[in-house]
Design a protein around this nucleic acid. Structure first.
Length: 265
DNA sequence: AACCAGGTCTCGA
DNA sequence: TCGAGACCTGGT
């Protein structure tokens, strides 16, 4: 049985870039298979070749949302967000896809990030039955790296190719990365071109199970200032968030991110 | 038409 | 260690 999940909140805005809503169905690609999900009678209908176990893992069913939301509900604002965004779950993404996606996500807005990731998938990713493309492997990208110029990535283009090379040639080892502590993996990831504190935090949170990560972007910066009067360097805002919200700061960050998104659009 | 975007890099103080 | 500018491109 799947955990309680609000698909619109969870898939719709921010953390993943390859899910699209067609009518009432959400369409995505997981493990190289096209998957369709919808909410029906408060249950999740699933179409596609994906096991219930895999789906539970993908939606982090081990996360006890009631416990987590209770723990991060430190004040009136967070209590309100916790009740309004009930069912917003973090997703356990594939490390390679997550890393490259957030490498591309720098200094761009959500529609553009979706567009860039989609261009990369159409250009390099194997075509799947049903018409969608898989997320390309590092070697998929390196095999035709000259085509990267046509993906509209701007200055991220060279970073993407270099990143693929670093993974392909073993300088970036995801197996090792997954064994590291939060601090270790941030420091390790920042050694690669195009990955700074923000991208490293996103990777730590969205695919490496470090729920204490607190990625700070423009929106989080704005919210932390407005709601709590916290401003300053990346480190200052991140550490304030982590200290205030505790071990599940990442979930708090996600609620605040969505909240700011509702207001600013 | 400017301004901004799930930032990073470089460089000077 | 920290702040300021540059940076591709497209959305709004």
């Amino acid at each position: 049985m799947l955990p309680m999940v609000d698909l619109d909140l969870t898939l719709g805005c921010g953390q993943v870039f390859r899910w699209f809503k067609e009518g009432e169905w959400w369409s995505g690609v997981v493990d190289g298979k096209e998957v369709h999900l919808r909410t029906h009678d408060r249950r999740i209908d699933v179409r596609g070749e994906i096991s219930k176990d895999r789906l539970r893992d993908y939606f982090r069913s081990g996360d006890d949302l009631d416990l987590i939301y209770a723990e991060i509900a430190r004040d009136d604002l967070m209590r309100d967000l916790a009740s309004r965004f009930k069912g917003l779950r973090l997703i356990r993404q594939d490390p390679w896809e997550c890393s490259l996606s957030y490498l591309l996500a720098t200094n761009a807005n959500f529609p553009r990030i979706q567009k860039m990731v989609d261009a990369v998938c159409r250009t390099f990713g194997p075509l799947l039955p049903g018409g969608r493309h898989d997320f390309p492997s590092p070697s998929n990208i390196l095999d035709g790296e000259e085509k990267a110029l046509k993906c509209g990535l701007g200055y991220r283009c060279g970073r993407m190719v270099e990143f693929a090379r670093n993974v392909e040639e073993g300088r970036l080892d995801f197996e090792a990365l997954m064994e590291m502590s939060y601090a270790e993996c941030i420091s390790y990831l920042k050694g690669f071109e195009g990955i700074g504190d923000k991208v490293a935090d996103c990777i730590a949170l969205f695919c490496l199970d470090h729920l204490e990560a607190f990625p700070v972007d423009v929106r989080i910066r704005r919210v932390m200032d407005r709601a709590y009067g916290i401003k300053g360097s990346y480190k200052v805002v991140r550490e304030c968030g982590q200290r205030y919200f505790g071990r599940y700061a990442g979930y708090a960050q996600e609620l605040l991110y969505h909240w700011d998104g509702l207001k600013s659009t």
